[in-house]
Design a binder for these strands. Structure first.
Length: 473
RNA sequence: GGCGACAUAGCCAAGUGGCUAAGGCGGGGGUCUGCAAAAUCCCUAUUCCCCGGUUCGAAUCCGGGUGUCGCCUCCA
């Protein structure tokens, strides 16, 4: 069997995956900051991580998966400048920050469910792990990597031997403050805050006691503390969006390795952006689409999932409604074919060699750094081939869907549900019956008239040997 | 200014040194059908942004252009 290879950002190349413990994978994925709805660009990353997790499962690994929820407000910079997104959102909506966090956490979890994303074993709120963060900061402090300045505790990157190794940062030539002013309380512009006691927001609701005074944690400490608490000082895979490489993940590594004195994570995987109108989709750009927006436009979450599977996770993906239409059409055909296969499961033939080849092709695609476009091509070959029977097709497709996560086993139910949502099925059935009667009498003009009527309802009529079937267009 | 990506058909998108450049959508044609739809079959890139180079051989490697994007504030 083709071995699983993953692109490790740490070494900028594909590497064979070898877990720390045999058969077990400890996986950490950065979660969402819950001050607003997740947009479909955010969700692309969670789909990629889900595919990773499913591929690991397909390779027979047991997975321990942890994801955080950033429900603490964070300033837009360590310099205590800019706006706290949580606070801002709370003010805008006239709610407490706690309520804001709760609302958007629920919405996010609903999105994950709709996208058929497997839930993490632990979905951890940052606000419930303050103690773990304080403990980690203490360890970092004990090892001499911190200093205090103007009330805040800073991480001193000059104490790190290899700060920036993940991102290949060239600190001498990085223009810190190219876009914002540098916090002059810092010794080095790239130092970052571990614990704040000062905030320009007097009404900051979220504050906790700490050895350094009442305040709140810096952003990067959260993931480092939560991941090491649940997965240990050394674990297998850490994922996130590509934007996290230079700052967030770089700082997480600095903190964790300063605390433990040993190598932290073996494999770093990063998902590329979703591009919308020539730019990455972003909240600040103020034109972002949510899963709900897509649903309103009649694109189901699984259509979006299929759309994302159409591109490799390390490549930018251009979003357009034209492409989404294409994904919707493809998924509709897949489901129709599966229903057809289910209805004719009695055919069973095909040589074992060919079946083995199909399965082998699929594995070599997913195990080649999660090449999902390639995996989909194999799925289409199964759907279309006449070299194997329906029984064999069905088994292969359901097996592949463990990784694809398109809920193919539910095809029939999804089609039925769509019918019930869109039209009055009793009325449609009645019209279909009338039309069949008209057709028997060869009253074509009446039959066509009814077909026209159904067409206007959004119903597509299919006359076949076994009678007339119908689908929502 | 520094760093990092990317450029493959009408659209989306695999492939990264060697059989006919995957697959999906769209389009064209045939079969089927009362006519349609669906299904099915066939066709739809002599060529991979441009110019050089390496090589028996390059979309794939190297150099130089051009263009687009991302990061260096928070961000998936």
């Amino acid at each position: 069997m083709e071995k699983l290879k993953l692109y490790n950002t740490l070494h900028r190349k594909k590497e064979e995956f070898k877990p720390i413990e045999p058969e077990k994978v400890k996986l950490y994925t950065c979660g969402l900051t819950v001050y607003d709805y997740a947009h479909i660009g955010n969700l692309r990353t969670y789909i990629f991580e889900d595919v990773l997790k499913r591929t690991l499962q397909y390779n027979n690994y047991d997975i321990l998966h942890v994801m955080n929820i950033t429900d603490i407000g964070h300033l837009t910079s360590d310099a205590d400048e800019g706006q706290d997104k949580m606070v801002l959102s709370a003010k805008k909506e006239h709610k407490s920050v706690w309520k804001i966090a709760e609302h958007y956490t629920k919405a996010f979890e609903k999105d994950l469910k709709n996208l058929n994303i497997l839930f993490p074993d632990y979905h951890v709120k940052a606000t419930e792990e303050i103690e773990a963060m304080i403990d980690l900061i203490k360890r970092i402090e004990d090892n001499g990597y911190t200093y205090q300045s103007r009330g805040n505790v800073y991480f001193d990157i000059s104490k790190c031997e290899d700060y920036g190794k993940l991102a290949n940062l060239d600190l001498d030539n990085l223009q810190a403050g190219a876009r914002i002013e540098v916090d002059n309380a810092k010794k080095n512009p790239h130092d970052f805050v571990l614990w704040f006691t000062k905030s320009k927001f007097d009404d900051q609701e979220m504050k906790w006691d700490s050895p350094w005074g009442k305040g709140y944690p810096g952003w990067h400490i959260e993931c480092a503390a939560i991941s090491t608490k649940y997965l240990g000082d050394h674990f297998d895979i850490h994922c996130g969006g590509i934007d996290h490489i230079p700052v967030h993940h770089t700082n997480e590594i600095a903190q964790a390795e300063a605390a433990t004195g040993e190598k932290w994570v073996n494999y770093w995987l990063h998902g590329e952006f979703l591009i919308f109108k020539h730019h990455k989709m972003s909240k600040s750009r103020n034109e972002f689409l949510t899963l709900e927006t897509l649903k309103e436009k009649d694109y189901s979450p699984l259509v979006y999932r299929y759309f994302c599977l159409g591109a490799h996770y390390r490549k930018k993906l251009n979003f357009s409604y034209e492409s989404l239409d294409s994904a919707r059409e493809s998924l509709k055909r897949i489901r129709d074919k599966i229903v057809h296969i289910e209805d004719n499961l009695d055919t069973s033939f095909g040589d074992a060699q060919y079946i083995k080849k199909l399965k082998g092709d699929f594995i070599s695609q997913i195990n080649n750094d999660l090449n999902m476009p390639g995996a989909l091509a194999v799925m289409w070959e199964v759907l279309k081939t006449d070299k194997i029977g329906n029984k064999e097709k069905y088994d292969l497709l359901m097996d592949f869907d463990k990784v694809l996560g398109l809920r193919l086993e539910d095809s029939r139910r999804i089609i039925k549900q769509k019918k019930q949502e869109k039209v009055n099925t009793d009325l449609v059935e009645k019209l279909i019956k009338e039309r069949e009667e008209a057709r028997e009498k060869k009253n074509w003009s009446k039959a066509d008239e009814i077909r026209e009527k159904l067409d206007n309802l959004g119903v597509e009529v299919r006359d076949g040997a076994k009678g007339t079937e119908w689908r929502i267009k």
